[in-house]
């Protein structure tokens, strides 16, 4: 177990990191940011949790599951979930590239819609690139966390 300072800092920092990551993901298609960097930042938040509270904290403390410590890390339920996230992300990214093909546009074509008069925002831009970015985000988070939990456990 780490020090009180570490754990207290982690409690404050992790939500901030996650929010920044999500904002980077959402605005990434036309501002600095994007799926990759948002994914890396999200993984960083998880790494802080791992360092401060230990590898099993997520499953035991957050999800309320029982964990037997002797198991192979790659068969942990949370790691299986990470791997599934990776696969689903890849499917989203490829699928978002294939959709324009069905609409008779080239592979990976992107478009956007501007909505006027939206409450709070007034002017909201919804880009199709967001779907691709979301796929990349899932791939990066899933891939990095799989590596970190498996290698970290060893």
């Amino acid at each position: 177990m780490t020090t009180v300072i570490m754990r207290t800092t982690a409690r404050i920092v992790v939500p901030i990191v996650l929010i920044v990551a999500i904002s980077l993901l959402i605005e990434g298609h036309n501002l600095p940011g994007g799926g990759f960097i948002a994914g890396v930042l999200t993984s960083t938040a998880f790494v802080i949790v791992y360092i401060a509270f230990g590898l099993d904290f997520l499953e035991r403390g957050v999800l309320g599951r029982d964990v037997d410590p002797g198991k192979t890390p790659s068969r942990d339920r949370v790691v299986v979930a990470y791997r599934r996230l990776f696969t689903v992300g890849l499917a989203i990214a490829v699928g978002s590239g294939l959709v324009p093909l069905a609409l008779a546009h080239p592979f990976l074509s992107q478009s956007y819609v501007v909505l006027e008069g939206v409450p709070l925002y007034h002017h909201l831009e919804i880009a199709s690139a967001l779907a691709f970015d979301l796929g990349v985000y899932c791939v990066v988070v899933g891939g990095l966390l799989t590596i970190i939990s498996v290698v970290g456990a060893e």
């Binding site: 294939l98 324009p100 093909l101 546009h105 080239p106 592979f107 074509s109 992107q110 478009s111 956007y112």
Partner: peptide
């Protein structure tokens, strides 16, 4: 609305077909 793209012909679509097939597989 921003899609100002050439609609690819049949031969053109054929070019990317092998790549898409392996990607989907």
């Amino acid at each position: 609305m921003a899609l100002q793209t050439l609609s690819p012909g049949a031969e053109s679509t054929l070019v990317i077909a092998p790549m898409l097939i392996v990607l989907v597989a």
